[in-house]
Write a protein that binds this DNA or RNA. Structure first.
Lengths: 113, 113
DNA sequence: TTGACGGGTAGGGAAAACCCTACCTATCGT
DNA sequence: ACGATAGGTAGGGTTTTCCCTACCCGTCAA
């Protein structure tokens, strides 16, 4: 199994918010960081960011490691791989978009699950 | 330009709903369809589905063509290509996950935009 | 032309999302 | 032991989402 509906839903819902996507970008570009370092990049109070981190955690997109009184957050990209898999069956609809081939395919229903 | 922030936001927001993802799947598997054919697959009144179609339209994920009194909805996958591009910089975080290489990369911040 | 059919819009209610200010717990330094 | 620091949780307000019923307009068939 690739993704249960509920997991898939949590991941897409987590990605629906710009702040949370920005958190993922920061973790990707700068590596694991404590909460305060992340919070410094947003015009938002720390508790609000804390809840965004909770959403990301519950979607499996970040993990936390305790180090003293700090919580180091780290990117967990596995759920994004599932998003990519979700995208796969759509790929041919934006590739082969030349010479009307795309429109042709659109008009011939396929039969994958 | 690949995606303005607002467009990106609309696409991710559109994908955050399971009904809307299901609509995309139906259009992909069965080709363009009128509203009623789509509505038959959901336990929801047609006006509600109509609003989901509006969200998808405003995200550029579907287009409508009028044919008599029917509106034929069609998948428009281009915005999904932008989602795939958004995913690209994360790929190395779920590939090369062998022998601790992933953890190493996580700890060495990179410097792409 | 008069229904009937396809489908969008209006208005409203319940729930969820998102932000805030307090507050609480745990760890560190002195 | 005590204050300061890191960060999560509680409670609340505002906005958005998602569903509903009612209603409207355009097209087709009799």
């Amino acid at each position: 199994m690739v993704t249960t509906g509920a997991d898939e839903d949590r991941v897409f819902a987590a990605l629906a918010n710009g702040t949370r996507r920005e958190v993922l970008r920061l973790l990707r570009e700068r590596g694991p960081q404590p909460v305060q370092a992340l919070a410094d990049h947003f015009a938002m109070r720390r508790p609000s960011l804390s809840e965004h981190l909770k959403v990301l955690r519950e979607a499996g997109l970040v993990s936390e490691t305790r180090s003293g009184r700090q919580r180091i957050y780290q990117l967990e990209a596995a759920p994004l791989a599932e998003v990519q898999e979700w995208l796969h069956p759509y790929e041919r609809f934006w590739r082969d978009r030349l010479k009307g081939l795309g429109e042709l395919l659109d008009r011939i229903p396929d039969d994958e699950t």
